[in-house]
Simulated scan of single mutants.
Amino acid sequence: MSDLIEGFLGKSVEGKKSKLPAQLDYIQSATGLFLGLFMWVHMFFVSTILISKDFMYDVVQMLEGSMFLKEPQPAITSFAVLVVSAVFIAHGLLAMRKLPINFRQWQSYRTHMGMMNHKDTSLWFIQAATGFVLFFLGSAHLAMMFAKSHEIGPYASADRMYTDIMWPFYLLLLLAVEFHGSIGLYRLCVKWGWFEGANAKETRAKLKKLKWAITVFFLGLGLVTLAAYVKIGYEHRDNAGERYERTSHLELRHDGKVKA
C-alpha cells in the first residue's frame, strides 16, 4: 500500500519524498560520464590511422587480445561493444525522462528558452537534439561493430567509408557525438559542482571555454581522421575486401621462392 501511495503522490506515508528521481539522475550522470570519456578514448583509437596503417593494425590486434592469446579474437571487441551498448541504452532511457513528450511541453520549453536567452538552456536543446540523432545513428554503429568486429582494420574500415559509401553516416555521427558529449560533460561539471572553486560564475565561464576548445579539437581530429580513411579507401578501391597485412609480415616472392 505504501508503494501505491508513493506512486501517486511522490511521497511515502511518512511524508518523505521519494529518492528514486535523485538516484536515477545519479545513474544517468554516471552512464553519461562513462560514455563521454569512452568516446574520447575511442576517437584517439580510430585516429591511430593518422600515424600509420601498421600502428592502427597493431592497436586493433592488441585490443583483440594479441598480448595474451596466440591468435587475436574479434569476439573480445564484440563483448566490449555489448557492454558499451548496455550503458548506451541505459543512458538513453534515463535521458528520455526529461525530454518534452507532447506539443504543450515543447511549446513551453521553446517559450522559456526564448524569453530567458540563457546559453546553458540553449545548450540543453542542442544536447537533446543530438541525443535524439544518436539514438538512431549510435545504435546502428554499435550494431555494425558487434556484427562485424572482425572487419576493423586499416583496409576494412577504409573500405567501409569509401566503397560502402558510409562516410556521410559517420560524418553525421561525428557531429552528433562531439556536440552531445562535450555539452554533456560540461553540464555534468556544472550540475555536480566539479571544479567549482571559490567563484562558481567564473568557473562556469572557464568550463564553457574549455568545452568549446574540446569540441573544436575533437571535431578537427575526427574530420581529419575521416578524410584519411576515405583517402585510403579510394586508393584501395580496386582491392576492396582485401585484409591488411602488417608491413613486417609481408612476404616477398622472388623467382618462385618465398623470402622473409
Rank of each mutant, 00 (worst) to 15 (best):
W124R: 06
S66M: 03
K148W: 06
L50E: 12
S2D: 15
L207V: 10
V87W: 04
D255T: 04
G15Q: 05
G92W: 09
T31I: 08
A75Y: 09
S2V: 09
C189P: 00
K201V: 12
A22S: 12
P21N: 10
A86W: 07
A240E: 11
R104P: 01
N117A: 12
S248F: 08
K208A: 11
P168L: 06
F125Y: 08
L93N: 00
S248Q: 13
E245N: 05
F146A: 11
G184I: 13
H91T: 10
A176E: 04
W106S: 11
Y109I: 04
S66A: 13
L99T: 07
G233D: 14
I76A: 04
S182P: 01
A260R: 12
L173M: 11
F169E: 03
K70P: 01
L250S: 05
A129S: 03
D164G: 01
V230Q: 07
E6A: 13
G131R: 09
G65Y: 10
S12C: 06
P74F: 13
S12H: 15
P100I: 06
A240C: 06
Y26F: 09
E178S: 12
A86D: 06
V133R: 03
V13Q: 07
A30G: 04
T215G: 01
A147Y: 14
A176L: 12
L219A: 09
D164P: 01
R253N: 11
L188I: 14
V13G: 00
A240W: 02
N117D: 12
T163M: 12
F68W: 15
I76G: 02
V13S: 13
F8L: 15
L20V: 15
F44L: 15
A200Q: 12
I89W: 13
V224C: 06
D159M: 12
A205K: 07
A80H: 02
D25H: 08
T121N: 14
H112I: 01
F34H: 04
H118L: 01
K209H: 08
L134C: 07
S66H: 03
F218K: 09
L9C: 04
H150F: 09
L142D: 05
M96E: 08
W124F: 08
L4H: 01
L134I: 13
L250N: 10
G10Y: 02
A90L: 15
G36N: 02
R160Q: 08
I49K: 14
L174P: 01
L175V: 15
G220M: 09
K98R: 10
L252P: 00
T31N: 04
L221E: 14
Y234V: 11
H42S: 13
N117S: 13
A143V: 15
S122Q: 10
